[in-house]
Amino acid sequence: MARRCFFSFHYQDVIDFRANVVRKHNITKDNNGGFFDASIWESAKKQGDLALKRLINSGLENTTASAVLIGSGTHARRWVQYEIMKSLERGNLVIGIHINGIRDRHGNVLSQGPNPFDFLGLHISADGHTGSPIIWNGKTWGAYSDLGAFKIAQQPADKRGKLFQLSTWLPTYDWVTDNGFDNFAKWIA
Rank of each mutant, 00 (worst) to 15 (best):
P171L: 01
A143Y: 12
G138Q: 14
I99D: 02
F17N: 08
S167L: 03
I15C: 11
G180K: 00
A149C: 13
G33M: 00
N108S: 04
A126V: 08
G121Q: 07
D158W: 04
Q12Y: 15
K151S: 07
P116F: 06
D16T: 09
D30H: 15
S111C: 07
N20Y: 01
F17M: 08
N62M: 10
Q154K: 14
I84M: 10
G33K: 00
I40T: 01
P114W: 03
D104I: 05
K86D: 09
N179W: 14
G113C: 11
G91C: 01
S125C: 06
N179G: 13
F164G: 01
E61K: 05
G128R: 00
F17C: 07
A126L: 10
E89W: 05
V176W: 11
S8L: 09
H10W: 12
N108F: 11
I70G: 00
N62T: 07
N179A: 15
D127Q: 05
A189G: 14
G59H: 05
G101H: 03
T63A: 08
R23L: 05
E83A: 03
P133S: 01
H106W: 15
S39A: 06
G48F: 05
F117H: 01
G73P: 12
K86N: 06
W141F: 10
G96L: 02
R23M: 13
T64C: 13
Q47D: 15
F36S: 14
K139E: 14
R18L: 07
W136A: 03
T177P: 03
Y11F: 14
R78G: 04
I134D: 08
N26M: 04
N100C: 11
T172P: 00
A185C: 02
G71C: 04
